[in-house]
Computed example of a mutant assay.
Amino acid sequence: MMTKRKIDKARGERIRYVRSEILKIGSQEQFAKLLSQHGPAVTRGAVGNWETGKEVGIENLSRICKLAKVDLNWLAYNRGNPDAPIISSFDPDSLEEEQPEVGYSREHWQGSQEGAIPEIDGKLGAGQGQLGEVINLPVGNNAISGHAVKAEWILPIEYLRNEAKASPSRTIVMEVVGDSMSPTYLPGDRVLVDLSQDTMTSDTVYAISDGETEPQIKRLQRVPFSAPAEVIIISDNENLQDFTVELDRLKILGRICGVISRR
């Protein structure tokens, strides 16, 4: 017995809206050619079927979202904000965990132009941090959880590589809240966090977490000759006390490579 294919006219209208209003592409044929430049070939007929509400694979939906910079959750299911791009917050391979540990990565985000660095909806606490808005999105047969992107900062690639010593493709921007790192980092400052530098290689400032609470910005100093290895977690605010923990208990999200400040 043959089953009738499901028609989702509302989804088809959203795909047509993305093509004609967001990407400003007048014909389905042009849209098919554009999609074919970024993956497997797509025909004009396939685009026509999608826009009438016929089945469309998640890979093609993801490709459309990547080109148009719209939220996959909105395009596929009409949930969330069409303008909310995301940064993936954990590895899909870890989905056996009911509540996976929150981490940070950038594999599901691309900027509008070269040198764009995303500022995520999360704040590094110089005191107490904030995780911010997290969006659940389908990817293939799995799902990922991602931090919404609040803004893009355009920084020269050569500055990031040569001056900040940061990876342009792995760096994010986060806002600082609290005053425990004053006067070095003040509330409202934005810092560049290089997610590729997630191990302690030198005594400097990192974005850290204990795996249970919100992310923090702190200065780390290794304790010489300690076994197991220990680090001193330092607040630049002289009114606050430093404390020591075993390095293995600390989750390093990335190294702080720069600061954007009104000063």
Rank of each mutant, 00 (worst) to 15 (best):
I252H: 01
S169E: 12
D203C: 11
E101I: 14
E114L: 10
V70P: 06
Q241E: 15
K251S: 04
Q197S: 10
D203H: 09
V193Y: 04
N237F: 11
I260Q: 05
K123Y: 03
S20Y: 00
M2P: 02
G178T: 09
V149L: 07
I233W: 10
Q37E: 15
S20L: 05
S89W: 10
I252P: 05
E98T: 11
R16M: 06
Y77M: 08
E175Q: 15
V70C: 15
I120W: 08
I154G: 00
I22G: 07
Q110R: 15
P85D: 04
M200E: 11
M1Y: 01
K4G: 00
E13Y: 08
T201I: 09
T184S: 11
E212K: 15
N60M: 12
L192D: 01
W74V: 04
V205R: 11
M181A: 03
P40H: 09
Q128S: 12
K150L: 15
M2T: 10
I232Y: 05
E158S: 14
W109A: 01
E51K: 06
L220V: 14
W50M: 02
T52D: 03
T43Y: 01
R19F: 05
I117W: 04
I117F: 04
G178N: 10
N141G: 07
K24S: 06
H147N: 10
I7P: 00
N73I: 01
W153F: 15
R106P: 03
V70N: 05
V173K: 05
V205Q: 11
E51T: 01
Y77H: 12
A84Q: 14
I172L: 11
W109E: 00
E98N: 09
S105M: 13
V191S: 03
A76D: 06
E51P: 05
I260E: 03
G125K: 12
I64F: 04
I208L: 04
R170V: 00
K54N: 11
E214S: 13
L72S: 01
E163W: 06
D121T: 02
G53Y: 12
R190S: 07
Q99G: 00
N162R: 14
S105E: 05
D236F: 12
E246V: 08
D93S: 14
S105L: 03
D248C: 06
A227V: 03
I252G: 02
D93Q: 14
E97W: 07
N73C: 05
M2Y: 05
E59V: 13
N73K: 13
D203P: 08
Y17C: 02
S27N: 07
V223N: 06
V205G: 02
V177G: 09
G45D: 12
E246N: 11
A166P: 11
A76G: 09
S167F: 04
A207P: 12
I86A: 00
N78W: 01
Q221K: 13
V42R: 01
K24D: 10
S167W: 06
L95H: 10
A148F: 05
W153L: 14
D121K: 03
G48R: 07
V56S: 02
V47R: 02
R19P: 04
R16C: 02
Y159T: 08
P82A: 05
G132A: 08
